[in-house]
Design a protein around this nucleic acid. Structure first.
Length: 648
RNA sequence: GGCGGUGUAGCUCAGUUGGUUAGAGCAGCGGAAUCAUAAUCCGCGUGUAGGGGGUUCGAGUCCCUGCACCGCUACCA
């Protein structure tokens, strides 16, 4: 049995339809999966849906259906979308499936048996939109920072996972396995996070219905961690099919978004350690694809359905763009301009035209056939050496998650082939019967180079490379592993089937307006550039109107009392006399002013600043100070004035 | 505030362990060719390598230090 390669993506939360971000993750993971199949590995590519939680219940209720109906319906939507995108998944796990529940029960039982689960009381602010708890300081004006809604105070008996006990083991694992977290920048962040210490994790929720019942606790369901993350093992037989699990686990790579990389590098490995299960070899945090100025977000409803893109030029074109345009692991932009530019230049002009002109010439000059007995094999073009060099480079790139580089290198062979056509000028050779052997040989080598390009590009554009193979007269789609298929060998013969362009050019002028998404919004990068180009427009140097200044209510106040904030070495809690009222303000001046020196001093306070809670203490206002050379100076009136006096 | 990262041609980016005239693609300009999707091929870049300082025979590549932006994080208000 060949070496196994198990690759997963994050499972998708199905409270909304799939968008470009989903497509990006699946497409890149699919390309990696296909590349590893071509490398001869025993690949298992797992994707799936996350189908529990209150947000699902709400989406279902809003649609007037039961949660189960809702997730069934969404599963079809996601699967048909991914079929359209040519995603070649081997396994699709849904968290409502019995096999998943079984896996969750099994891992919980193991973790519990090992003594890593305890019962305790949980309190916190719960936002239903986020399905997450917040501490006081996370809230903005008492509201959820993501949803602008008021969370509710929750106190419940809960099950806890002793996550904090795994800190050192996790750090050691990351240190000993440099490839565990990729790209490297993500690893640094996770290490920093771990060094900051961990808290135990609440893993159950009371009062939630739509979820996996928590074993031995009829009132609670399993909270997201032990539910969703467990898909990676339940999807390959954990808890149901030990033989399959032994064959597929550990995963070679979890492909996830950079926003959830940390969970996959901390909580998930700790869960596995606690259950005595092997850890995945690698967690790869990919970047985001931006468009119209905001991160694709299911919650904000700012979505662009990838199908819109697919309908313009087909799935392969979108796949090519996403894989080629973004450096894997970094963020990038989707824009129709960039998409069309790459499509026309690299797919239509470079590759598509190469296929067309070569097959057309073979048809025109040689009747479409190069027979087995033709005078080939002389290596007249040098393409053989080019192909061998490029193949080695491309394979290395696929193995190293350098998806863009793999395509870039592949295209160097495309360019080389176009150069060869120019150099050898087959149309000239065709005029001279005495040079027919040379003509045949050149076209034979060009066709062979195209065949190899199709092999190397297949992970990215599997549909179109099948078409190209058909043009070359080759049967079937997927072919042998690269170790065989990329070997330069002269075919016994060619029988080409020229046809319409494989990648018809996109006429920019005729590019329909309808396909231009939300133009009023500016991309994040464009905003950045605009900011750079015209700093006066947004920077502090810009002049403001007097009205704007008047919006800021500055008042003189007298400090009545100052005490340190418990547990904070920079904060003082001040009680201020504002004339008609007393105000409590928290200020980060403890390093510069002793509490006992402050009472009686006058300060300037921003009186209408929105209240905030800092370190558990409410602050209603801000006092002004200037910092210079590391020293802080409180602002005060030149001589004593009545407290509450407005500053203008 | 702390930690990490980025800053290279109009645009997107490569640049291995410091070493010859700093590269590629796109866009632009000029030309060739005509098999091909007005496609292709050839030629054309004096780029303050964000700024300053340093180490070295020699630095985009190492060190120090401001700056700008990004990410994570924090007891910013």
């Amino acid at each position: 049995m060949s070496r196994k390669f198990t690759i997963t993506t994050a499972i998708d939360y199905v409270n909304a339809k799939p968008h470009l971000g989903h497509a990006y993750e699946k497409i890149t993971a699919d390309a990696i999966a296909r590349a590893h199949r071509a490398l001869g590995r025993d690949v298992f590519f797992l994707i799936g849906n996350d189908e529990h939680g209150t947000k699902i219940e709400k989406s279902a209720a809003a649609a007037g259906v039961s949660p189960q109906e809702w997730v069934d319906r969404m599963a079809e939507v996601y699967q048909s979308t991914y079929e359209k995108l040519l995603i070649s998944w081997d396994g699709f796990i849904r968290t409502t499936e019995e096999r998943h529940h079984s896996g969750v029960r099994e891992i919980l039982a193991r973790v519990r048996a090992n003594g890593w689960i305890r019962r305790d009381k949980y309190t916190g602010w719960y936002c239903e939109g986020c399905e997450a708890f917040y501490t006081e300081k996370d809230l903005v004006d008492g509201k959820c920072p993501n949803h602008d809604t008021e969370p509710r105070w929750v106190e419940e008996e809960n099950w806890f996972f002793r996550l904090s006990d795994f800190r050192d083991r996790l750090l050691a694992h990351i240190r000993e396995n440099p490839g565990f977290i990729r790209p490297e920048s993500r690893r640094n962040e996770v290490v920093a996070f771990l060094e900051g210490g961990l808290e135990d994790l609440s893993i159950s929720r009371a009062g939630v219905k739509w979820g996996i019942p928590f074993p031995e606790d009829p009132n609670a369901v399993v909270y997201v961690w032990f539910d969703a993350l467990t898909n990676y093992i339940s999807g390959v037989g954990f808890g149901t099919d030990p033989a399959e699990f032994a064959r597929r686990w550990p995963a070679s790579v979890h492909v996830v978004g950079k926003d959830i990389t940390r969970f996959h590098c901390v909580i998930w490995p700790a869960m596995l350690m606690a259950a005595d299960i092997e850890l995945p070899e690698c967690v790869f945090g990919h970047g985001f694809i931006y468009q119209s100025g905001t991160k694709m977000s299911k919650s904000l409803g700012n979505i662009v359905n990838p199908l819109d893109v697919v309908d313009v030029t087909g799935a392969d074109a979108l796949r090519y763009f996403l894989i080629r345009e973004l450096t894997y692991g970094k963020d990038g932009d989707f824009s129709w301009d960039a998409f069309i530019a790459r499509y026309n230049a690299e797919l239509a002009n470079d590759l598509g035209n190469l296929v067309k002109r070569t097959t057309d010439m073979t048809a025109r000059f040689l009747g479409g056939e190069i027979s087995a007995g033709a005078d080939t094999g002389k290596d007249r073009t040098g393409l053989r050496a080019d192909a061998e060099r490029v193949t080695a480079t491309v394979i290395r790139a696929w193995e190293d998650f350098d998806l863009s580089g793999a395509l870039e290198s592949t295209w160097s062979l495309v360019r080389r082939a176009n150069q060869v056509i120019q150099e050898k000028a087959p149309w000239e050779l065709a005029k001279d019967d005495l040079r027919r052997a040379e003509l045949t040989g050149v076209l034979d080598e060009l066709l062979e180079a195209i065949r190899i390009v199709a092999e190397l590009a297949a992970p990215a554009i599997p549909g179109k490379t099948d078409e190209i193979r058909a043009r070359l007269g080759l049967a079937g789609g997927a072919s042998a592993p690269w170790t065989e298929s990329t070997v330069w060998r002269h075919r016994p013969g060619w029988r080409v089937a020229p046809g319409d362009p494989v990648f018809p050019r996109i006429d920019r002028k005729k590019e329909p307006e309808k396909s231009e998404p939300a133009t009023e919004a500016v991309s994040k990068r464009a905003q950045k550039k605009a900011k750079r180009a015209a700093p006066a427009a947004t920077g502090p140097a810009a002049s403001i109107g007097i009205e704007q200044f008047r919006d800021v209510e500055l008042r003189v106040a007298t400090v009545l009392e100052a005490v340190p904030v418990e547990g904070a070495d920079r904060l003082l809690q001040l009680t201020l006399d504002l004339g008609d009222e007393k105000r409590q303000v928290v200020s980060g001046i403890a390093r510069h002013y002793a509490p006992e020196d402050l009472p009686g001093r006058q300060v300037i306070v921003v009186a209408n600043l929105a209240p905030a809670t800092i370190r558990g203490v409410e602050s209603r206002g801000m006092i002004l100070a200037a910092e210079s050379g590391g020293r802080l100076a409180l602002l005060a009136p030149g001589h004593e004035v009545a407290p509450g006096t407005r500053v203008s």
